[in-house]
Design a protein around this nucleic acid. Structure first.
Length: 287
DNA sequence: CAGGCTACCTGCCCGC
DNA sequence: TGCGGGCAGGTAGCCT
């Protein structure tokens, strides 16, 4: 579900409501959400209790909260929202959400809740991960990161022998882009999702990068994309970028540029949405 | 390295 | 009303 803009909305919410607060109690309601914390739920709770959240950081779709505290190293609470994960700030006595997995009581009386319907997301404590968790080391910088290097991206992309959308979804090459924003950026360029990366000229790479960055920035400014209540910010509010989508989910609807009916094609066990006129399928790997 | 497939889960929607 | 299949914003691992 959440891609970079949605995760960044959550990160900002955590920065506002959680950073600087001490964790006074931890409850794990479903151990499956701690699959990546191999030491188990008791260890998880023990090591979080009493710690103060020092910061809220993000790279791509990964979030982490560096922790302060005596007797501990510079470790962090690592989170990935997967397809359906939510971080919600609640009153402790608020009704329990159906898919509530973990609660963290904060010293100011609020409660941070991790809710996750499909359990593809999860929480873990990353040893020494305050700066950059080892679990995130394989993730490339995202285009909203000031240190993102377009030259390096272009060089690595050119060395690939693959389709351009597959490359965009490769979090080791560029992070934060998921199925929605990949289709939106490709529509804006415009470029067919199967276009071979080796045939892209540098100007096309730069245009693509421009649109990837722009569409995610615009979505962030509108609070992200929410099709339903599964994606919400820490206060439970939806984003409204879904109204601005030009490609994703628009099969059969007219292209916003040329009016041709948009198409949906199976791609990597999901779907790609594209305009057959603006984004013609490449021939000879080029056009 | 590329990429196809599977697994990890729940829920919704559709056709029968 | 129920059942099966397909679909959904993601990632990791195994195999060829």
């Amino acid at each position: 579900m959440p891609e970079l803009p949605e995760v960044e909305v959550v990160r900002r919410g955590l920065a506002d409501h959680v950073v600087g607060r001490r964790i006074t109690a931890v409850r794990v309601l479903d151990v499956r959400s701690l699959r990546r914390h191999v030491a188990g739920p008791e260890d998880f709770a023990l090591r979080l209790t009493g710690r103060t959240v020092a910061d809220a950081r993000r790279r791509g779709k990964y979030l982490w909260l560096p922790l302060d505290g005596v007797d501990h190293g510079d470790d962090a609470l690592l989170a990935h929202l997967g397809m359906s994960g939510q971080m919600l700030i609640s009153e402790p006595d608020a009704p329990l959400q159906k898919h509530l997995k973990v609660t963290l009581d904060l010293e100011d009386g609020a409660q941070l809740r991790f809710v996750d319907q499909r359990i593809f997301g999860g929480l873990a404590i990353s040893d020494g991960g305050a700066d950059l968790p080892a679990e995130v080391a394989h993730i490339a910088r995202d285009p909203l990161d000031p240190a993102f290097d377009p030259d390096e991206f272009a060089a690595r992309l050119k060395r690939r022998e693959t389709g351009v959308k597959r490359a965009l979804l490769d979090q080791g090459l560029i992070s934060g882009v998921g199925n929605i924003y990949a289709d939106e950026a490709l529509w804006r360029v415009p470029l067919h999702y199967a276009r071979n990366t080796r045939t892209l000229r540098r100007t096309e790479v730069d245009t693509l990068l421009h649109h990837v960055t722009e569409v995610m920035s615009e979505a962030l400014a509108q609070g992200g994309t929410s099709f339903d209540a599964l994606y919400v910010n820490v206060n439970g509010a939806s984003g409204y970028f879904d109204r601005s989508l030009n490609a994703y989910g628009r099969e059969g609807e007219p292209c916003g540029r040329c009016g041709t009916a948009m198409r949906r094609s199976p791609f990597m066990n999901r779907s790609s949405y594209w305009c057959p006129r603006c984004q013609p399928r490449p021939r000879n790997g080029r056009f």
